[in-house]
């Protein structure tokens, strides 16, 4: 038996596989297909202080080996989450992590503050990287000063594990990562979607109502892998890797590049059981290669 347990600071995961925010609803959407408590952690849909309707339809376009989305953080707001959704999640025997977003620092702070009091939410993932909102979102994640400031302000009020989700839409990811680490983040997750665009030549119109959107799926995996590798070398805090993970081999590659855990996103849409297959695949890999613990492969990339 290999040990799949991973610690992200004070956050204890039964295995390193989590679900990426916005791709797994609140978990219940998948409970017909799998026992969701087997997943290491479920990162629920991006939550903001107030209700957001998101962007108008169309807000998704399939592209080569991926998809562009411009959902725009549609959610019913933190109070609705606490009152109506949280009670349904308290029986799920795994880590429920809330992805927090905002247009202003004040919104991030107030939302995070409210989550302090939920016993079954051991961590939040601060989303400073959403490319699909007009204000805030990615703006906080593309400048070291802004990233440092928002993380610092949230850190002052949030007592549990603070994960910060970074945007790939920057020149030097390691600089942003260091700014976030300095501000007191417990972990970094990356990458959020890559800003992209699709056009319908026949109609000469953009495919998304917002013109641009966030690209996810295997199309972005090499980019994500490189950024996770760069980030893991730049900071001391744990890194959670994501971006186009479709199977166990992909997940293992991220861990070899330095990720302590991974998030699976777009793959959930195609195969709702994929997280379980990835967990089992990692276990199988560790057995085959004679590792006794998954932590042994974190950053175990060898040189040529």
């Amino acid at each position: 038996m290999v040990d799949l347990k991973v610690d992200i600071g004070k956050l204890h995961l039964k295995n390193p596989v989590m679900t990426a925010s916005g791709t797994f609803g609140y978990g219940m959407e998948y409970s017909d297909f799998i026992d969701i408590s087997r997943i290491g952690g479920i990162i629920v849909k991006g939550t903001t202080l107030r209700k957001r309707e998101g962007n108008p339809y169309p807000r998704m376009k399939e592209t080569a080996s991926g998809m562009l989305n411009a959902v725009g953080l549609q959610n019913k707001g933190i109070d609705y989450f606490i009152e109506h959704i949280y009670p349904q999640l308290t029986n799920v025997d795994t880590n429920i992590i809330v992805n927090v977003s905002g247009s202003t620092i004040d919104e991030y702070v107030k939302t995070a503050e409210k989550l302090n009091y939920l016993e079954k939410i051991p961590a939040i993932e601060l989303n400073i990287s959403c490319p699909n909102v007009k204000e805030g979102g990615m703006l906080f994640g593309t400048s070291c000063t802004a990233a440092n400031e928002v993380v610092d302000k949230v850190r002052r009020v949030y007592k549990n594990v603070l994960i910060v989700k970074l945007s790939p839409n920057v020149t030097d990811i390691s600089e942003i990562a260091k700014a976030v680490e300095d501000a007191g983040a417990d972990a970094i997750s990356l990458i959020n979607t890559v800003l992209g665009m699709a056009i319908d030549a026949e109609t000469r119109k953009p495919c998304l109502s917002t013109v641009t959107g966030g690209l996810s799926g295997p199309a972005i995996k090499p980019l994500a892998l490189r950024m996770v590798w760069e980030t893991a070398r730049a900071v001391k805090i744990p890194v959670i890797g994501m971006g186009g993970i479709m199977n166990a081999a992909d997940a293992i590659e991220f861990m070899l590049a330095g990720a302590s855990a991974v998030e699976v996103g777009t793959a959930n849409f195609i195969d709702p059981t994929v997280t379980i297959k990835i967990i089992e695949g990692i276990e199988d890999y560790l057995c085959r290669h004679g590792f006794s613990s998954v932590s042994e492969i974190v950053g175990a990339l060898e040189t040529l």
Partner: peptide
């Protein structure tokens, strides 16, 4: 017949505007 990502209410891509919101 909106374009869908997941088909199970997770991706929030296939929305339409109704009297009960999007």
């Amino acid at each position: 017949e909106n374009t869908m990502g997941c088909g199970i209410g997770a991706c929030l891509c296939c929305v339409t505007d109704t009297t009960a919101g999007r």
